[in-house]
Nucleic acid binder design. Sequence first.
DNA 1: GCTCAATGGTCTCATTTATATACCAGTCCT
DNA 2: AGGACTGGTATATAAATGAGACCATTGAGC
Lengths: 149, 149
Amino acid sequence: MSRLLSGNPLPRPEAAPASEERSAESALQRWQKLGFDPSRCPVRDVFDHVGNKWTALILMTLAAGPQRFSALHRAIPDISKRMLTQSLRDLERDGLIHRHVHPTKPPSVDYRLAPLGLSIIGPLDTLARWAEVNHPEIRDARARFDAQD
Amino acid sequence: MSRLLSGNPLPRPEAAPASEERSAESALQRWQKLGFDPSRCPVRDVFDHVGNKWTALILMTLAAGPQRFSALHRAIPDISKRMLTQSLRDLERDGLIHRHVHPTKPPSVDYRLAPLGLSIIGPLDTLARWAEVNHPEIRDARARFDAQD
DNA sequence: GCTCAATGGTCTCATTTATATACCAGTCCT
DNA sequence: AGGACTGGTATATAAATGAGACCATTGAGC
């Protein structure tokens, strides 16, 4: 238990810029080294809720402005209504979006980013750009792996 | 269908820097507007594979340097071995990590970031920092939602 | 007035996916 | 010899997801 994560003289893969690597460690690994309760780890929580496919897609779609339920469904056709409803509830519960009901005769509903939701668009978009840029390489790697192994 | 996402004079939530907001739209919404096949959308693909809880956690743990299977399991105790095995295979298949077998008498295995994997640590860490900073606010929102509704 | 479609969902059921648990062969420590 | 660690696999069960039917209300077209 004492040598669990203490002195770890493993060979580094490469001499990566120390500052970069250290900053990448810190956020998550402070938790790990200190043995904090994993169930309260923010990283787990956020990646589980906000980082999942549908949730991220919804948030990024809402970045263009408020959208009604069915507009969202049209923008993301491959989500089931069931999942769309549930994801929207989750996002609302977490304070990332607001559900706004217009009291028109046939009441209409729209969803819009709350300030908290707006603040995650940047990080999310950074990942999305990475995805766009590196997707070909991932597909290649996948093809190679499937072919030879 | 024509007015679906065309002219959208909706009230912006706030006067965010136009460049920021436009850039947030562009990545995903080009796809949506052009009606591309969702199954080939890089954003879906990456958020599904790389953005899920375990995968992101593994990548960030490996950012500190190569780790053996059991070290990873100790660092992330709440993942099942089965899921850890499977997540590692997926990451290897996508070319984000390498599996390295040392031909010692009892052979030992370690996993390390491939260049592609190293390149995603930055974006991932950005999200992780957001998580750390905003987790309290999310928890508050959740508590409020659960209490009154 | 009748039919057809859209709205914003909910409900049920089948399939997919994840977790928990047990197990394996080989090797080290005591 | 007993127990623990290595890197997993196999099986059984629980949870998440998807497909599709349904609902009350409204508006448009015929």
